[in-house]
Structure formats: C-alpha cells, structure tokens
Design a protein around this nucleic acid. Structure first.
Length: 547
RNA sequence: UGGGGUGUCGCCAAGCGGUAAGGCACUGGAUUUUGAUUCCAGCAUUCGUAAGUUCGAAUCUUGCCACCCCAGCCA
C-alpha cells in the first residue's frame, strides 16, 4: 500500500479514483483522450482533454492519444493532423499515440473468441429487420432467427464476411446478450459490420469493421487504461462496456466514468453543424476565426491558457450544464489583461492637429502596466496625430468624458489638449479636429493643474502605418430552446476589410503575434503575407448590449 | 411509456447528518493617465416539491414534479 497522500478530490471523478486507489484496485492511473478523426477539435474537446490529461497528470499517471477510427466513411488523415496540432497548441503531451485501426487484428481475434464462446453470432437480418425486431422503449425485442446458429457455422460465416463474400448490410456480427433487456444497448448489439469504404490508414485490408461498443473496451484494455472517461450519453453503454470485459475475461477491467459535455450559450458545438458551415461555405474553413474550434480560436487570438483556465473554472460534474459565453470571455480577458503587450491601434481614424505644437518628441508607455518589469516603449508625439472617431463628439451625450468642442482630454502618456474647433466635409462628417496642448501637462510631470476625466489613445502620423483590418461579425442566437431552423439560428455576416492605423514598432516585436485588450474586446494582430493584419471578431449581440 | 441520468442564486459550482464555499454576471462606492484594471461592499433564512426519520436534513427514507439521454450495421 502506497503511503503517498492522495490528491484532494475536487470533483466526482477524483473521488472515484481516490476510492479505487484506497481499495487497491489500481496503482498508476492511465487515461486516454479518444477523438474520432472526423472533424476538427472544438472547445468541448478542450474540456475532455482537461479531464483526461489533467486527471492523469494529477495522479502522475499517463494519458494516451487514441484515435477512434472505426468508421472509414468519415475519417481522414487531415483530421488526425489537425487534432495533434491542436492538442499540442493547448499544451498537452500524450504518452502513446494509438489508433483503433492498429488494433483491428486483435479486435478480430476477440470477436472470434466471442463466437467460440457462443456469445456472438452472424445475423442475416437486414438493418431494417433488425430495427423492427429490436422492440421499443416499452416492448421487448424478438430473437433473431439466426441467433441459434452453431459455433462452427458462425465461425465459417464470419470468416467469409472478412473475406468479402457478402454485400454491405447483408449480414453482421451480433453479441448474444438479451433481447428482452430494458436497456436497448443490450438487445444483441451489432459489434461488426461490413463496409467496403477505403480506410484512411488500413486501406482495403479490411471490409469488416468493429463498432464503437465493441472496439472501445478492447482498445482501452489493450492500452492498460484504468479509467475510461467519456460523456454522459454513453452511460447507457456502460453495461455493454462491462459485458465485453467480463465476457472476454480481461484481467484488469477499465472503469468507465461519464461526465457532462460542455454546452455554451451563443454558439453550437456539434460537429455536424460545424461541418455544415464549412461545407456550405458560410465560413472559410474549420479554422475560421468565427468557429468555436480550437484552431478557430487560435486564429482569433484566444490564448490556450485562457481556454484551460476556463475548463478548470467551470468544473466537472454530471449535470447537463450550459455555460454563459461571458464566463469564457472573462477567462480570456483576465489572461490578456495580465499578459498582453499593449500597443495602440486606431480602428476608425480621425485626424487631430495640435495647432500650437511644433517639432517632435518621444514619450514612454508601459508595454504592460500589469508587469512593469517588461519595460517601456518609445513612441513619437507630433503636431498631427490620429484618434478614434468615437472619441470625439460634436453633440456629446451626458457624462461623455472624451473629446468635445471646448472640452479637455488627456492624450494617454502625453499631454492634455483642448478642442478649439473642427472641420467638416460637405456631408457634415468631421474630418479633422483642431486642438491646443498644454506644455506643463506632460504625462508624469503634470504641473498644469488641469483635471480631465477622459483619457484617449492615439497614434502619431510619424508612427502610423496602415494595416489591414479583417473584421468578422457574427450573430449567434442561442436557439437551442427556440426550435428554429438551423439557418435561422446562425447568421454570419460577410467580413469587412478596412484600413486602420497602427504604430510601426509592432513590426519590431520578436513575436509576430501581438494580443491586445481594447476596452472589452480582443483582437489579434499578425503578419499576414508581409502585411500587418488586425483580426477582430465582433459579436453583434454583445455590441448591442453595450449600447 | 421501459431503462439510465440530473435537479443548490440569472449562469457554472462546492457541500456527503451539525445549521448554505467560490467564480461568472449584476448593483453600489473608493482609487485610476486605458470609462480598463485594482479595491472594498451588496447579492440563496434556503438547496425541484411534499411528507417522514432525527435534538438537528441540501445531505437519510418514501411519494410526486421537471429536464436530459437511449429504439444507427455513427461515435
């Protein structure tokens, strides 16, 4: 018996594992993260990774990456590559990289063993006939007429299935359990089926493929998995999972534990929908910044640490939960506020001329006010600068702290200015603001005595450079309870490309990706084909709220 | 409807018979050269509901109620 103290259980999974260790049922913990390579990973998978990799780490155990590739019609190499990339991006390392397809030979042997034990039979009922004889929720099913075939006959037929002598759907291998079971999964489930689709890894070597319910417990066992953690919808499958282990006499039986999958407001998580968005061209690809995929989030500038923090904070339970998106955003903001290097970007530029200023000087600003040891950066201040259009108003609403005619405002890290006038075009749009500055009000050495409530950011003409703005707007209605059609639920507006101004020195940063917190939004600035690009994803729902 | 689950603040979520943690959101107020951040303060006499056991129940028992999952040769 180990004297090592058990990790304190912070969720029900850990309580179960602690008990298993106390009961000496297990020593080292082995888990697995089991995606099917039929799409890209999304934030829901991040929760699964957090549970599987995180649990293994907590107990100083191991976690494998296991590709559940038993359905050749849906799986692709592209997906396994993206999955591996996304896991690494999140910061997890797997112990072994396994594939269900690596175990096909062994799974096949186990099927034969089952037949020899008279626990499985080849059934010639059509899929529709199987459906019709399965019974209903309230009525028991009927035994297949092929249930009583002899072991030798089953062995012979299964071999012929493997050799490709039968058509798809003409027969399958079924476990012989109980057609009267109240659990539908136990009514002689299909465990092997015929498919002539080419498998992306095994090619045409096989034309019979194990079903999830048969392959999964075997693969877990062969990987020495101690705790097979999956989502709630598999709870009904646990008796079947256990049946396989017991019937095949596994020495160490892995324990299946289920937890609630992640649900979030204002977005959809199901791969079916995400795939549809990609296929009908609503988004560019799986990694479009509007997608809730991990690669989409990466392109949107969401740091992996924030995703993991979110998974940590929402907790693991069995209640079907739907987290508010604002919880996730809080995690992102918290991380960015502490880590993001600040820079100044003017999205909608408005020229501001300081009429009584001549020449040029340098002013300092904190690279990150949360971490002053990161130092300061120099920026040029001059007669002509650009401010945000929103930071100037001719007819300001009450409590408007920013620049207005005859009003004062501080230019961050520089001087206080007063608005003396403005120039409009024929349409009445303000094209330029005229100001005077106060020499004694310089940041850090202010002797002017002027108090300003507002502070606005700016970019000087000398430092300004245009960058491409790629702005995606999305309006995601949470229509899960509204029963609307999918198309009505999700309306992605087309992107807008604009010119914005940023400061040149963001080019000189060692990393080409700079995160910035601007008010409550988040942006990503990167170097795209030699040009600076600002990516912004605006939730219309949120922006309505703020107005 | 048979089976399997879940019900603790608007949203997550601790609690596991001794008298309701925490986070998000929200609301006040203080500091502030990002209307950000930070900081204080407020926010469930009550744990789906009704009985019962107990000196004492969110925690145990029983009956109701609500919601989710299952009738793919998908995972």
């Amino acid at each position: 018996m180990s004297t090592k103290p058990l990790p304190e259980a912070t969720n029900f999974i850990q309580s179960i594992i602690n008990q298993d260790i106390l009961d000496e049922k297990v020593q080292t913990i082995q888990t697995r993260f089991p995606p099917e390579p039929n799409g890209y990973l999304h934030i829901g998978h991040a929760k699964s990774m957090f549970v599987n990799f995180g649990t293994a780490k907590l107990y100083r155990g191991k976690c494998n990456l296991f590709f559940d590739d038993t359905n050749p019609s849906k799986e692709k190499e592209e997906y396994v590559n993206s999955i591996k990339k996304d896991i690494q991006w999140l910061g997890y390392n797997w112990q072994k990289e396994c594939y269900a397809s690596d175990f096909f030979d062994k799974i096949y042997q186990y099927a034969i063993q089952l037949i020899q034990m008279n626990k499985a039979y080849v059934c010639n009922l059509s899929p529709e006939e199987i459906k019709n004889t399965r019974g209903t929720l309230t009525e028991k099913g009927q035994d297949s007429p092929y249930r009583t075939r002899t072991v030798d006959e089953n062995l012979q037929l299964f071999e012929e299935m493997r050799l490709g002598k039968f058509k798809e759907g003409s027969c399958c291998l079924r476990a012989k359990i109980d057609m009267a079971s109240p659990n539908l999964n136990l009514r002689d489930p299909v465990i092997y089926r015929i498919s002539y689709d080419r498998h992306y890894r095994t090619g045409n070597k096989w034309c019979i493929y194990p079903m999830y319910d048969f392959a999964h417990p075997i693969c877990d066992y062969l990987q020495n998995v101690t705790h097979s953690i999956c989502t709630l919808e598999f709870e009904d499958h646990r008796p079947l999972y256990d049946w396989v282990g017991i019937t095949l006499n596994f020495v160490a039986k892995p324990k299946q534990i289920e937890f609630a999958r992640l649900g979030m407001t204002n977005t959809v998580m199901s791969k079916r929908y995400l795939k549809k968005l990609v296929e009908d061209g609503t988004v560019h690809n799986w990694d479009d910044p509007r997608m809730p995929t991990l690669s989409g989030m990466r392109n949107r500038g969401i740091p992996p640490e924030a995703i993991l923090d979110f998974c940590q904070r929402i907790g693991i339970s069995k209640s079907q939960a739907e987290c508010e998106y604002s919880y996730f955003e809080a995690c992102i903001r918290e991380y960015l506020n502490y880590h993001a290097e600040r820079t100044n970007v003017i999205v909608k530029p408005l020229k501001l001329t300081i009429t009584n200023y001549e020449g040029e000087e340098e002013v300092d600003f904190d690279i990150n006010p949360m971490q002053t040891d990161k130092g300061k950066r120099k920026r040029r201040f001059s007669k002509t600068i650009y401010i945000e259009q929103d930071d100037f108003s001719i007819e300001p609403p009450p409590k408007y702290y920013r620049l207005k005619p005859n009003g004062y405002v501080r230019l961050k890290d520089a001087y206080i200015v007063r608005c003396d006038g403005f120039i409009q075009d024929k349409m009445g749009n303000v094209t330029e603001v005229l100001c005077t500055y106060f020499k004694e009000s310089k940041s850090g050495q202010d002797k002017s005595g002027i108090k300003t409530k507002g502070v606005i950011h700016w970019v000087s003409e000398a430092d300004a450079m245009p960058i491409e703005l790629v702005q995606y707007q999305l309006l995601l209605q949470d229509a899960r309870y509204e029963g609307q059609d999918f198309q009505e639920r999700i309306n992605y507006n087309s992107e807008q490309i604009k010119k914005v101004f940023a400061e040149k020195y963001i080019l000189s940063l060692s990393e080409n990706t700079v995160m910035q917190c601007l008010r409550t939004g988040y942006y990503k600035i990167d170097n795209h084909q030699g040009k600076l690009r600002l990516t912004e994803v605006v939730s219309l729902k949120e922006s309505f709220k703020s107005k």
